[in-house]
Design a protein around this nucleic acid. Structure first.
Lengths: 218, 218, 218, 218
DNA sequence: AATGAATGAGTGTTCATTCAT
DNA sequence: TATGAATGAACACTCATTCAT
């Protein structure tokens, strides 16, 4: 279902359009697919619209993807990789409290989370995940699990430094991402309601989490 | 879009089938719709299958609901009300620590959350929410917001009792429900992965939250 | 296909609703059917609407008519008979020129033609005639042919009196009704265009027809 | 509602099937539609049957016509234009009596009227005209009104030549076409009855009309 | 490689007709 | 007789996918 592009290794090519152009076509399709899937959802997106938006013919899609599902898969992977690519997570300074470190590091990530469309893709995957379990799993492996590993890493540091009660967070790292995910979902889903401030919520969440560590010195 | 059943006021007795039977038919349709929407999603559920599952003819659906969307709306409302009906939230005992109270009270609610299909309905609403914003909003008003109001209530209590740093939670009550929602989503979405223990996660979350209050006495 | 009402002969009745009421119900249905068939056409008229308009239940129709087609048949017959009932065609005065006689007699008939809905029924029969040939034939026998016989009658008189060239009109009486039918059709069909004056057209037609007789005295 | 074929201007050559083939497909659909609409009427004609008869897939229809109504519209226009195309109405010879001219000219037109299906299309339009008023109006503008203009033209000639009483016919040209229309309708509608001879009727009609002119010389 | 006309399975919805009450 | 809830055959229309060009 994946339809990966043929490895661009410099084997015997020549003849036929340049691989560069092929890749460009493919990219245009993924881009168009991303935009439309996000806007209209998987089911309501017509293949013909994807082709139209990509400035290509309907049939062309099938030269690059076996299926609507395969296109969707490619779109999700694309967003996943694109987000990962900008990772470059900074490390805490030698004696920096973990809480300060998180305050410094998370907001830009959230901006990325929002702007990359990742949050809307989560919803999208949630929508179609049941029907396309492989897509959901790709998503988990490429995006969710790495994030959780990082949480575990810094949870360990905070625990070792006595900033956090040992155990809970490194056992259940989802706790850390939960507020951001939920507030984002809330805002996306209930567009009619007053939006919740994702960043402020996360900040208050940190306050609660590190209250013990923050208080005890006093 | 709601197609509510006509108020069963004791008007002039109707000839033909009893109103009771009519209500039963409606209920059967909602039930069948619920099961299928949950299992297959909105788009993939065929009206004919709903009828089949309800043991009724296809046309019968349209005697009770104007539309597929109207049926979906009714299904969501039904689940919402059904869940609310079993509320009967106990109150904390006079001197009971809020944390103990939550430990005592939340697990049954979680069971309800899981068993009522509410968690899957959340996903369902999330899936189709974009296409059916009114449904999403009904959902928020009937389910989400009341829960948040209760959270604010007990957050205030905990803060007044010095169990929690004042402010964060009553400002952003979503923090409280986030771990449960996210772990439930995780389990529903990534059926392929090892499931996360929702209850244990919530417990650990409480540990972190009330760490300050638990520690300081020591 | 006719579903005539059971002969009301005073056999063993008693028990069950009075035949009078039955007839009234039947009449209500025919009336409702007439109105709706004329307004919306045969195909677009729903049986449920007929029932609604008659203030009866859907099922009741089928106690009186086996079929939608049977109802239509009854409606057409009803209009046919109703129109005939008001016949009472006056006779020409002893020495009255046929042309004057027609001028005197036809306009009220045209009013009847228009007001009885007969013209619209013609269109209706024309619409569905192909699908319901028996209805069309009933129509011809009950309405058209009698009219043509009358035309033949007076055509003979006019010819005998030297008012009209002998032969053409009594051979082809349709000629006489043609202008009225065509102008009525025109007005009904092309509601967007300026309507043609049916009466004035008929008058001019008479002028042409009797020009010879009218002129020769000069 | 018209779905006219895009102007075949010599733009950038399209890949894929030739425009010629596209036009042929369209034509096949109109042809099939014509045949079936005439045979079974608008309502009773199934789109799938149109496709079948055209030797095409069901979906193909919708590449050329947005709607069943649009197809009907195209069919009616097609017949209208087809009939007009064969116009080439001859003119009266210098001193030819108008009546002789009409006798010479009308019969072939009647043949065309009959064979082109125009008469049946009139009935068809009459059937659906109420539901599709635009179609009826197209019909009037393209077929009916031009014919009436020609009638007015020759009515004037006949009147000027003293063959006809001045006024009536040029005021109400429908009189001229009425016998043909009515006899054709009669034959089409009452297939069960003995058919009326359209041509003979028209001939007798001319006899009556021009009786004055024919008589007075005597 | 690229195209878009052609396809036809699949779906929501309507409505004449039936029948238990 | 009267009713109206229930039925399911029927139909217009959509859209992912194919393939001749």
């Amino acid at each position: 279902m994946t339809d990966a592009p043929p490895p661009a290794g410099p084997g015997r090519r020549r003849r036929g359009p340049s691989p560069a152009k092929t890749a460009a076509t493919r990219r245009a399709l993924v881009e168009a697919g991303l935009a439309l899937f996000l806007d209209t959802g998987y089911g309501a997106t017509r293949m013909s619209d994807v082709a139209l938006r990509a400035g290509l013919g309907k049939g062309t899609i099938y030269l690059h993807f076996s299926d609507k599902a395969a296109l969707f898969d490619a779109v999700v992977r694309e967003v996943a990789l694109r987000t990962r690519a900008q990772r470059a997570l900074p490390r805490p300074r030698p004696n920096e409290p973990t809480r300060d470190f998180l305050r410094r590091v998370v907001p830009p990530l959230l901006g990325l989370f929002r702007d990359s469309g990742l949050s809307r893709v989560i919803l999208l995957v949630a929508s179609e995940g049941a029907r396309l379990p492989e897509v959901a799993d790709v998503y988990r492996q490429v995006i969710i699990d790495p994030v959780l590993r990082i949480v575990v890493l810094y949870a360990g540091r905070a625990e070792r430094r006595g900033e956090l009660r040992a155990g809970p967070l490194s056992r259940h790292p989802l706790i850390m991402v939960a507020p951001v995910v939920v507030t984002t979902l809330y805002n996306t889903l209930f567009a009619g309601a007053a939006p919740v401030d994702v960043l402020a919520t996360f900040d208050d969440f940190l306050d609660l989490l590190f209250a013990a560590g923050a208080k005890s010195p006093a």
